[in-house]
Computed example of a mutant assay.
Amino acid sequence: MMESSHVKFSVSHLTAQAVVHAVIERARALGVPQSVAVLDARGLVLALCRMAGAPLVSIETARSKALTALFGSSAPADAEALPPGVSRLPRFSSVGGGLPIVSGDRSIGAIGVSGGTAEQDLECAHAGLAAVHGASAPKGHDGEVAGRRSGGADRR
C-alpha cells in the first residue's frame, strides 16, 4: 500500500520571535503591558511572553485569543464565523485581540494579545502581523519569511 504524504505550512520559531518583539515594541509605545502568544498551524504554542506588569490572566487570555483566531475568527465581531458552540469552549475567546497568520489561502498560525483594551490588544496584534509579512521578518532555514514546510508520511 502506498503511503500518502502531506506538506504542512506553519510559522517558524524565528518568525514567532519577531512577532513577540513587534508586539512588545508596540505595547511599550502605548504604555500598556501585554502578553502575547504565537501559535503554529496546529494550535501549539511557539512563543509566549508576558511583559512585567501585565495581568497574570492575560497569559491564558492571549493563548485563547490566538486559538480563536486560528479557527478563523477575530472575535467579537466575527464570533458568528466560528462553528456552532465553539465560542463557548474553555480555550476560545469572545474578546478581540487575536489575528490569524495566513500565507496564501492557508492559515499557518495565529497571534493573540491581551493586557489592554480590546482595541489596544488588536493594535499590538496587527504590529505582530506586520512583522510576519514585513521585509524585516527573519527568514527560516528554508528561506520562507512566514513559515516553514514540514513533510511527513501520513500513516493512517
Rank of each mutant, 00 (worst) to 15 (best):
D142P: 00
R106F: 13
S4G: 06
A137W: 02
G140M: 02
L99C: 09
H6Y: 08
A29E: 14
D121W: 07
D142M: 10
M51E: 15
A127T: 03
A146V: 04
V36G: 05
P55N: 06
S10W: 02
A125N: 11
V86W: 08
L122T: 15
A125G: 08
V23A: 00
L30K: 12
G151R: 14
I24W: 02
S74N: 13
G134D: 07
S10P: 06
E3P: 07
V102I: 15
G140Y: 02
G147A: 11
A130F: 00
M51Q: 15
V57I: 07
H126Q: 14
V23I: 04
G98K: 10
L82P: 01
V23F: 01
A110K: 01
M2C: 05
L44R: 14
G112E: 04
A16T: 02
A41G: 05
T117W: 08
E123A: 15
S74F: 03
G140I: 02
A137Q: 12
R148I: 15
S94V: 14
L30Y: 06
A27E: 04
S64T: 00
D40R: 06
G147L: 05
G115W: 05
E123S: 12
S12T: 12
S73Q: 03
A118C: 08
T68P: 02
L30E: 14
P138L: 06
L70E: 11
S114A: 15
V113T: 00
S4Q: 13
P55C: 02
A153P: 03
V145A: 14
G43R: 04
L56N: 08
R149I: 03
C124Q: 01
A41H: 12
A127G: 07
A125I: 10
I59H: 07
A131L: 09
A146I: 01
E25S: 11
R28N: 13
E144N: 13
G96E: 13
V95K: 07
A127P: 04
V36A: 04
H6Q: 11
V102F: 09
S35A: 15
E144P: 00
K8P: 00
R149H: 13
A52L: 11
C49A: 10
S4P: 01
I24Q: 14
V45W: 03
A52T: 12
H13Y: 06
Q17K: 13
T68A: 03
S5H: 12
C49N: 10
R156K: 10
P90N: 13
G112Y: 02
E60K: 10
L122M: 15
G112R: 05
L122S: 11
E144D: 09
A29I: 02
S74D: 11
V32I: 12
G152C: 12
A52V: 12
I24K: 10
V102R: 13
A18P: 01
K65V: 05
I108D: 08
A18G: 10
L56R: 11
K8W: 11
R50A: 11
P33F: 01
S107N: 11
L46M: 13
P138H: 09
L129F: 10
G143S: 05
D40F: 05
K8F: 13
F71A: 03
E123H: 01
T117P: 03
I101S: 04
A22I: 03
D78V: 00
S10C: 07
G96Q: 08
E144C: 06
A146N: 11
S150P: 00
A16H: 03
V23G: 01
